[in-house]
Simulated scan of single mutants.
Amino acid sequence: MDTVILIPARYASTRYPGKPLVVLEGADGPKSLIQRSWEAAKAVPEADAVFVCTDDARIAEAARAFGADVIMTDEACRNGTERCADALAKASLDPKLVVNLQGDAPLTPSWFLSELIAAMKADEGLDAATPVLRCDPETLEMFLEDRRNGRVGGTTAVFTVKNDALYFSKEVIPYTGGKTFAAGDVPVFHHVGVYAYRPRALAAYGSWPEGTLEKLEGLEQLRFLENGARLKCVEVEGRGRVFWELNNPEDVARIESILKKEA
């Protein structure tokens, strides 16, 4: 297989226990979060296979019920990247690229993943890559609203002129000082919770200890940066679609309002 998409999902989320099985209403009726994430992955034309990766029997049962292939993983996995590495080993998969579509991002358009895969194929020197989306004023306000209310929501990213990642944070970076911006001029980039890895990078990741920055921010991708790996930020376009992950119970209404507008 050239490219596989793995969807890591766990039941015991600290912020939102049972999150993968939360039912979201949309224009196509009620479906669980994990099913909507699986359908988003299946829409990617470059994917040779899609697997749900979990350590929880409830998630596995639900996934198999809607037709997904499941890889059972170790419950000791601390994040999605570790779960992907464990799944790759347990299933004896040997793809050229591994894509991690986390199970809380059902609004991820297929072209986000396609452009990520293309970037990895264009530069063999990359260890990993992840999409970033320039915020519009509405999304920036949602970020700021979460922080004002003490909620840990989406993640922002800063990167070099060559798009190599510099840092990711749950804070809104760079600091904007309350300035207002026109659409297309917002200097804040929303990190999209999708990754593409070389199998060698996944293997290395599992051998590295959890770093200080990763622990403080709760962001798995910082382990790559702390260990000097090359992680590229691939800027993608929303094409009129609103992107948001399901991080907290408050996000359900936000996501359902978007799903109900989409046929």
Rank of each mutant, 00 (worst) to 15 (best):
R198P: 14
V23P: 11
R239W: 00
P95R: 11
L140K: 05
G177Y: 07
M120G: 14
L126V: 08
C84F: 02
F168L: 12
K90Y: 05
V132T: 14
L107G: 04
G177H: 10
V192Y: 00
L88M: 09
D56F: 09
T160M: 09
A263S: 11
V22K: 14
A105Y: 06
G206T: 04
A203N: 06
T176E: 09
A76E: 11
W38V: 00
L101I: 01
L88F: 05
D48P: 13
S13W: 00
L133Y: 00
D251R: 08
S169M: 08
L6D: 06
F112S: 07
D146P: 04
A105Q: 14
C77Y: 02
E237F: 02
P174G: 12
A27C: 12
L202F: 02
G218W: 01
S37A: 07
L225C: 06
K121A: 05
A196T: 04
G18W: 13
Q221R: 13
L140Q: 06
E82L: 14
P109G: 00
R239A: 10
K90M: 02
S37D: 02
E115K: 13
W244R: 11
L24S: 06
K260F: 05
S13H: 15
A62C: 07
Y197N: 15
N247I: 07
A85G: 14
P174H: 10
P20Y: 05
R64I: 00
V192T: 03
T14E: 15
R148Y: 07
G154N: 09
P209C: 09
F181G: 01
D28K: 10
R15E: 12
V152D: 09
D94E: 12
K121R: 15
Y167P: 03
R15T: 12
V22L: 13
A105W: 07
K90T: 03
T73D: 04
H190S: 11
A62W: 01
G67T: 04
I255R: 15
M72N: 10
A9G: 13
R10N: 15
V4H: 11
A201S: 15
G177M: 04
